[in-house]
């Protein structure tokens, strides 16, 4: 983080009525600074953010290690060592063993891999749904908007934890892919709302009007102008969703509503380990620690991306003086 100015107000009006949980960087659209392309500028800003960079490296390492661990780890996650039950970490069992002789390292790696994969896949599904719903609701307005937003409101009334937990009995014995689909199905609402808000402003932007006055069809306008101009917000939101999904997934798994045995996730590991947490802390501390570290890494990446992609970010902003009265659009 650099220490530049403190003046950056985004100049956005306060959202009214319908609650909007995340501040929408309306001007994330703007590219600036002559001579440098946007890409290099974003990269430069991101690379300067030490925490975000660390987050990226840590996350990549964790995922790589968890994926490749079967190649070098002495034990497999579904192997039992009948000679060592409930042993603390040692040379042969790096993270110790469970009551029934499972290798905690292998299990933790397996769980980490599963949790990260679920997070990434869910975020991918969620952003697809969110961008389609958000862009259509915002661009077409009218009954399309009202209908879609009603669904969003409805799904927001019920915490997704609750819905998935209720459906979970149907998941017993089925693959984790189904669980991912379910998570994705209930993770897009807030993003859709934000994207809708942004589409509403973009729709009134003159370059979109210009395209309309050229006779460009709506589908083309959404594909060519609306979605690309929301890309930065979408990227930021994907990282946020990855983080929150991992938390949700582990939470559900913790209660037995998520990943089903014999498969493991960090959540199930923590649950299994927590019963005797105070006497055999290695059973849950490694899983818990890695969970916190990976979500933290994801969050730092998201924060770094927000600063890098949003030119109105307070850090590293060009201090430009005077003129161009920014017309404040009062959103009704």
């Amino acid at each position: 983080m650099t220490t530049t100015d403190v003046t950056g107000g985004t100049g956005k009006s306060v959202p009214t009525g319908g609650a909007n949980p995340v501040d929408v960087p309306l001007d994330a659209i703007e590219a600036e600074t002559e001579g440098v392309t946007r890409g290099t500028l974003v990269l430069r800003r991101f690379l300067r953010n030490k925490l975000a960079l660390t987050g990226l490296v840590v996350l990549a390492l964790l995922y790589a290690v968890s994926l490749t661990s079967p190649l070098f780890a002495p034990w497999a996650y579904d192997e039992y060592d009948y000679l060592s039950f409930l042993q603390p970490p040692s040379a042969s069992h790096w993270f110790g063993t469970t009551q029934i002789g499972e290798d905690v390292f292998a299990q933790t790696m397996r769980g980490l891999q599963r949790s990260l994969t679920i997070g990434l896949l869910t975020a991918a599904i969620s952003i697809v749904i969110a961008s389609v719903v958000g862009a259509c609701a915002g661009y077409f307005g009218g009954w399309v908007d009202r209908g879609l937003m009603w669904i969003v409101d409805l799904l927001l009334v019920l915490p997704s934890f609750l819905i998935i937990a209720v459906i979970s009995p149907a998941l017993r014995g089925s693959s984790w892919i189904l669980f991912v689909l379910l998570l994705g199905l209930f993770a897009w609402m807030i993003t859709a709302r934000i994207l809708r808000g942004m589409t509403l402003t973009l729709r009134e932007r003159e370059f979109v009007k210009a395209a309309r006055f050229m006779g460009a069809p709506s589908g083309l306008i959404i594909r060519r102008h609306i979605l690309p101009n929301m890309a930065s917000l979408m990227i930021i939101d994907v990282t946020i969703t990855v983080g929150s999904t991992i938390l949700l997934e582990t939470g559900l798994s913790y209660f037995g509503f998520g990943v089903q045995p014999p498969d493991v996730s960090l959540g199930t590991l923590i649950r299994d380990g927590s019963t005797a947490a105070l006497t055999t802390p290695w059973l849950f501390l490694f899983a818990g620690g890695l969970l916190v570290v990976s979500v933290l890494a994801v969050n730092f990446i998201g924060d770094g991306l927000r600063d890098a992609l949003d030119p109105n970010a307070r850090r590293g902003r060009n201090v430009r003086e005077d003129e161009d009265p920014e017309v404040e659009v009062e959103r009704a």
Binding site: L247, Y254, L278, V292, L296, F300
Partner: peptide, 21 residues
């Protein structure tokens, strides 16, 4: 804030129990 927001509640609860003990 980041650390807490990255820690699931059940883990936070467990840790607090640990600390309380």
């Amino acid at each position: 804030s980041f650390v807490i927001l990255s820690t699931p509640v059940f883990l936070l609860g467990l840790l607090l129990k640990y600390v309380a003990l």
